[in-house]
């Protein structure tokens, strides 16, 4: 069990979401930075879909009520296990009774805590992620409160060097004034004026304070316009879709987006960019760069391949260290 020592209603149990339930109108959900989340599961030897914590509210404290292999990934929070500071992107064994304290990161928005065996909360509609809007999934369908006891699943591979292990090359977080988002044209791209198509990639876009798990609203000096008024019938919507409402200021759909919408779509952002975007603070600046589907696919496949290689390297490193 993990005992939560801080009230933190925006810190939630997440996994990789419940894509198979989108047809019920249920948000896909899951970790916003699924890249960092997957890395956390790799470090503790879990399958990629094991449940962990998404932490956006600091300081955050938990007490381990059992011996437990854990990892911290994502935004580099200042982490202490009892009095001992831990490096970023690190995994190790905690002993029963030890307390983990996470202070706000200087860069990035979301840190992840994974435990070997995963958090053993019930699977609802195919996933363990918390759906805050719907009030289901995760731990009692809500964010975490002081006193919550989070059960850990059985872990098969929790061997770990005494001082733990981490990554030599830390994953880079985006600079708050310069994330370039690769975007592929969506269904209504051609319906936008040439000026708007140019504007999309030429001007900087500021992330507004309306940036949360549902969507990131952007603002730019010049708004985007279609050639003629469009009235679209409602259609399925996936995280990563860049919608342009009548205001002309784009909204990027994120993990907890509604499953249907009707605003014109100018583009689509895929992984690994969506994970990077989730680490950008309000006020941060992004630019767009158009790519073809083929280029997006190459980036996506390279990203997946990289994660698979990391998993193999970490397994090999653990096996090597433990035989020494």
């Amino acid at each position: 069990m993990l005992e939560v020592l801080t009230n933190a209603p925006l810190n939630t149990v997440q996994d990789l979401g419940r894509p198979e339930s989108i047809s019920y109108g249920v948000a896909c959900g899951g970790a916003m930075d699924c890249n960092a989340f997957t890395l956390g599961n790799i470090l503790v030897g879990n399958s990629p879909d094991a449940a962990g914590l998404e932490i956006v509210f600091f300081p955050f404290k938990i007490r381990f009520q059992q011996d437990c292999v854990f990892a911290i990934t994502g935004a580099p929070a200042k982490v202490r296990l009892d009095a001992v500071p831990l490096p970023s992107c690190w995994s190790m064994m905690a002993r029963a009774g030890q307390t983990l304290v996470m202070e706000a990161p200087e860069k990035g928005m979301r840190s992840y805590l994974t435990v070997a065996g995963g958090l053993d909360v019930p699977r609802v509609l195919g996933g363990r992620a918390t759906d805050i809007k719907g009030g289901f999934g995760g731990f009692e369908g809500r964010g975490l409160q002081k006193g919550d006891l989070l059960p850990c699943g059985k872990s098969t591979t929790c061997s770990m060097p005494t001082n733990g292990l981490g990554l030599a090359a830390l994953p880079q977080l985006p600079h708050k004034n310069g994330l370039e988002l690769h975007v592929l044209p969506a269904a209504e791209y051609e319906e936008f004026t040439q000026e708007s198509q140019a504007c999309l990639v030429q001007q900087q876009w500021r992330i507004t304070t309306q940036a949360n798990r549902v969507g990131f609203r952007l603002e730019g000096d010049t708004s985007l316009q279609t050639r003629r008024p469009l009235s679209l019938l409602s259609h399925g919507l996936l995280p990563g879709t860049v919608q342009v409402p009548p205001s002309g200021q784009p909204i990027i759909q994120m993990a907890d987006a509604n499953t249907c919408g009707g605003y014109p779509k100018i583009g689509i952002i895929a992984e690994p960019d969506l994970s990077l975007l989730s680490q950008m603070p309000p006020g941060g600046l992004v630019t767009f760069r158009m790519i073809t589907h083929e280029q997006a696919l190459t980036r996506f496949r390279a990203h997946r391949q990289h994660l698979r290689q990391l998993a193999e390297q970490i397994d090999a490193a653990k096996a090597y260290i433990l035989t020494q």
Binding site: P19, E20, I22, S23, L233, S234, H235, G236, L237, L238, T259, C260, L297, F300, R301, R304
Partner: peptide, 16 residues
């Protein structure tokens, strides 16, 4: 995944 829309439909597939 298949997501029904109004006179439209969205599908996802394993692009790897």
């Amino acid at each position: 995944t298949v997501i029904l829309g109004a006179n439209n439909l969205l599908v996802t597939y394993d692009c790897e």
